[in-house]
């Protein structure tokens, strides 16, 4: 941050605050279902907050509140009113304000999840908003999507391929998806899920839990 600019946002090193996890991916791939699953599985052991992004509505926040997976007040909705990627990458102010509001009201939190509005394959979170990001694809979007790459598929900390139960019905080859993803992602992990069949999303929750513990270990509040 420049020397002449006072800014109310947290210091970029993130010391003393919750891990911020961005969840992005195309429309309908299962982002909200994954957020619900993570709340269900991690809620009992972690202090959580959730920020949802929709274009003109509060649809995703309403869904999560109805699902009863988390105290309703811990779910805030941002209406992006434009391309969703703008609000998670180019102008992150509305989302940062929502994240900081949750931390102020309910902090200290362990994890704040920011769910992007559904977008295209180029959408990624600014490092100023998310410390880690998950990109969610689904098999019915076509098994060639991992091969197409794009920053979400190639650089997200975790790639989730959801709706594996639909693979036989849409003729998607999970082996092809796994191989193509590994080719563009190198060592970065990929997990296959069917949140409809396995509503706890246990493997993803375990990955997130590991990230939260690693974060709290390296970003504990300075001793004052």
């Amino acid at each position: 941050m420049g020397a002449h600019h006072d800014d109310h946002h947290h210091a970029p090193d993130g010391r003393g605050r919750a891990l911020r996890l961005g969840i992005g991916g195309p429309v309908g791939s299962g982002k909200t279902a994954l957020v619900a699953a993570l709340c269900r599985t991690l809620g009992p052991s972690l202090s959580l907050g959730v920020v949802t992004n929709d274009i003109y509505t509060t649809e995703d926040a309403d869904f999560l509140r109805r699902a009863g997976v988390l105290d309703q007040e811990r779910i805030l909705a941002v209406e992006t009113g434009c391309c969703p990627h703008t609000a998670i990458r180019d102008d992150i102010a509305a989302n940062l304000d929502a994240v900081e509001t949750l931390e102020h009201r309910f902090g200290p939190l362990d994890l704040v999840i920011v769910e992007s509005g559904g977008d295209n394959l180029t959408a990624t979170f600014s490092r100023g908003l998310a410390d880690r990001q998950i990109f969610v694809l689904d098999v019915s979007g076509g098994d060639k999507v991992p091969r197409k790459g794009g920053p979400g598929v190639t650089t997200a900390d975790l790639l989730v391929v959801n709706k594996t139960d639909l693979a036989p019905m849409v003729g998607a080859d999970l082996g092809v998806m796994a191989r193509d993803a590994a080719k563009v992602r190198g060592e970065r992990p990929v997990l296959f899920t069917s949140i409809r069949q396995e509503p706890t999303a246990a493997t993803v929750a375990e990955w997130v839990s590991d990230q939260v513990h690693a974060w709290s270990h390296t970003h504990a509040s300075p001793v004052s």
């Binding site: 941050m1 420049g2 600019h5 800014d7 946002h9 970029p12 990458r89 180019d90 102008d91 992150i92 102010a93 990624t124 979170f125 600014s126 490092r127 100023g128 908003l129 920053p151």
Partner: peptide, 12 residues
């Protein structure tokens, strides 16, 4: 856009 740098820091 390409590197995901914090826009607030970049504009400062």
């Amino acid at each position: 856009r390409l590197l995901g740098l914090d826009p607030v820091a970049v504009h400062a």
